[in-house]
Write a protein that binds this DNA or RNA. Structure first.
Lengths: 207, 207
DNA sequence: GTCTATACCTCGATAGAC
DNA sequence: GTCTATCGAGGTATAGAC
């Protein structure tokens, strides 16, 4: 309460705006989002948005960058860990699937916005990501050479892992209809995926 | 030329508009698309868009529905075919991957718009899709019972297949960076996927 | 059927009082 | 810091001449 003079509740408002912006941008995208809707969601005046964040673009950038930081580091961290290959794959699926089920709309948001403006990636720190690929590549090559796993490229393995984890979240509406898993049924299906995807990958990698 | 009186080149213009609309909507989405941009792309006047299609919404609906028809039927057709399970899976991956590489932006467009308004699916004929699921389900159960493939639910199998086929198209910008496959390298990677995905799935299904 | 001009509106952004 | 009022750009849609 002492330093309430230096920061007189400013943070509370800025945070409310930011979280409201996340909600709206994640569902509507940049082009579909309306500043008025974000203001309503935050329960404050529209002019406040411009007071705290200068423009719609700046606000979006903040939300997008925060989204990237929620998605990439956890994945990279797992892939670059010192765990043996099998455990690494298992942990990757577990943490990633659980992490994303907490922000189901985040992957779709990032992918959609990235397709519309790939330059967004230029501002992202690729330096942290670079080491993970060679590491898993050599780890995989070793396991293949020892005959512990079938031959597969690191690219295909990573691509398959991420695809099977994320796509069911993105395509929820379609899958829900096609697979006839309405309402809660689909959430149960997703919950089971940690196990089923792990099994699927492990079986695929048997020599 | 005789019936050029009843349809005096009307089709040519309408088609040009429609294809231009596909291009723009597929890349920018509904909210991000501009009627002016569609008109420019078609090389005609903006007012013509409203003459042939009443509104932006109507034009979008036409494009969206056409998109769905390019995506769903080919998939369902393969899944509902009379081929034995192994061949069916192989054909599914082949045709689907090849089909979509001809319209790389289509899956992302459909998924993004569907997440923003799931009601789009209500207007789609689900009747044609319904029979495919039970068919593959029984086919799979039979193969499992005979010990020819490992136990897996039809939902997980279909979900994994489609995920591994489509997600690399959606997430192209991210994967291109993460996997360090710039430019043409990524297209080569995608071209190889028909084979690598088929192998991966077949290996996963070994008893 | 095709074009120009324009009406009408929504939205992002700012000015200015408090 | 917060609100109200409003400006101005840019968007969809239409009116009307040709």
């Amino acid at each position: 309460m002492v330093d309430s003079q230096t920061k007189p509740r400013t943070e509370a408002v800025e945070e409310r705006i930011f979280h409201a912006a996340e909600t709206v941008f994640h569902t509507k995208g940049f082009a579909g989002a309306r500043m008025q809707e974000i203001a309503d969601e935050a329960g404050i005046n529209k002019a406040m948005l411009h007071y705290y964040f200068r423009s719609k673009g700046k606000l979006f950038e903040a939300v997008f960058e925060a989204g990237i930081k929620k998605v990439l580091p956890p994945a990279v961290e797992q892939l670059a860990s010192d765990h043996p290959l099998g455990l690494k794959i298992r942990r990757f699926i577990e943490t990633y699937l659980e992490n994303m089920s907490r922000n189901p709309k985040l992957p779709g948001f990032i992918i959609a916005e990235l397709n519309r403006n790939p330059d967004h990636l230029r501002n992202i720190a690729m330096a942290e990501i670079a080491p993970a690929l060679p590491k898993i590549r050599s780890q995989l090559a070793e396991a293949v050479a020892e005959g512990r796993v079938r031959a597969i490229s690191a690219e295909d393995l990573i691509c398959n892992l991420i695809s099977m984890c994320l796509f069911p979240l993105l395509a929820r509406p379609v899958f829900q209809s096609i697979l006839q898993l309405e309402g809660g049924k689909y959430d149960e299906f997703l919950a089971r995926r940690t196990e089923t995807v792990t099994d699927f990958v492990f079986n695929a990698l048997r020599p």
